[in-house]
């Protein structure tokens, strides 16, 4: 009897740690999302307000703006990252010393901290001394003195660029893994059948990469939805609120305006979006696995 219970006793410390670090904050923030809590007035959550925080969010322009900004950011960064990663993987899948070397150095951007990437790009796009801003100005005189991060569209473009730069290497490795699992014979058979290189890519390789591409897109979407670090260090959400993503807006509501009740509600909206995508992701993985074993 003692032996049967021992594994459970041994699990208790880990269970307590998970409970304290994950379940408790989650439950606490969920309950807080139904309460009013102005951190400047009270150290503890105040009265229950029902769904007021959620209803308010539905009509508040800044929240809706952050949702729209996040949507634009997610769509562009996911599409660009997946396309670039796929293209790079197709170039790098051959064996050879140059390919191996490139594959090794390719991991460097992913190894960098997102906050540091933001700071670096902020410097590089500075109109006065930024190496990229000056370089572009030297090559295209019309671009001299362009206030890259002061223009809403350009600032969003640069934010997307930093994210694509950060994530493309990792996604390229995922693509390389997927490409390695495609039998060489299908491609060779297509070549003998008369397919051109483009046709082989679009008609033979990409359809077989469908599962990998879907997984990549979903994973990248989840990470893009949480975009925060680069916003803080690169644009600060600006100019205006043009790059204020949902995660950054939640941070502002909670830690600048100290409205913890509303911030908790917004955080749960973001969590719900990500849970929805995650569930879809798991279902898709299961169906892919079923297809693979059919």
């Amino acid at each position: 009897m003692k032996d049967r219970l021992l594994p459970y006793w041994l699990l208790i410390p880990a269970f307590i740690i998970v409970l304290a670090t994950t379940i408790y904050p989650l439950a606490y923030s969920f309950i807080t999302s139904f309460r009013a809590w102005d951190l400047t007035k009270s150290r503890r959550p105040e009265g229950f307000v029902g769904l007021d925080n959620y209803i308010y969010a539905a009509s508040e322009s800044q929240f809706l703006n952050s949702l729209w900004v996040t949507f634009i950011f997610v769509i562009t960064s996911v599409i660009l990252t997946v396309i670039l990663a796929m293209a790079l993987a197709l170039l790098l899948r051959r064996k050879g010393p140059m390919h191996t070397f490139t594959r090794i150095i390719l991991i460097l951007p992913f190894a960098m901290s997102p906050a540091l990437i933001g700071v670096s790009y902020r410097f590089m796009f500075n109109p006065e001394f930024g190496v990229i801003a000056n370089g572009l100005g030297a090559v295209f005189p019309a671009l001299q003195g362009v206030p890259w991060l002061a223009d809403p569209q350009l600032a969003m473009g640069i934010l997307v660029l930093t994210d694509v730069w950060h994530w493309t290497p990792y996604m390229t490795f995922m693509c390389l893994g997927g490409l390695a699992s495609i039998p060489r014979e299908t491609e060779e058979a297509a070549r003998i059948d008369g397919a051109s290189n483009l046709r082989i890519i679009f008609g033979i390789i990409l359809p077989q990469m469908r599962g990998v591409i879907l997984v990549m897109a979903v994973l990248k979407t989840i990470f893009a939805l949480k975009m925060f670090d680069q916003v803080v260090t690169l644009t600060g959400g600006g100019p205006g609120t043009s790059t204020e993503t949902l995660a950054y807006f939640i941070f502002n509501v909670g830690f600048r305006w100290f409205d913890m009740g509303y911030a908790s509600a917004l955080a749960w909206i973001l969590t719900a979006i990500m849970m929805f995508i995650s569930i879809w992701y798991v279902r898709m993985l299961l169906s892919e696995r079923k297809m693979a074993t059919a």
Partner: peptide
Amino acid sequence: IAMVFQNYGLYPH
């Protein structure tokens, strides 16, 4: 020419 491969080389999709 036409070729038949050891692992068939069929297009799985």
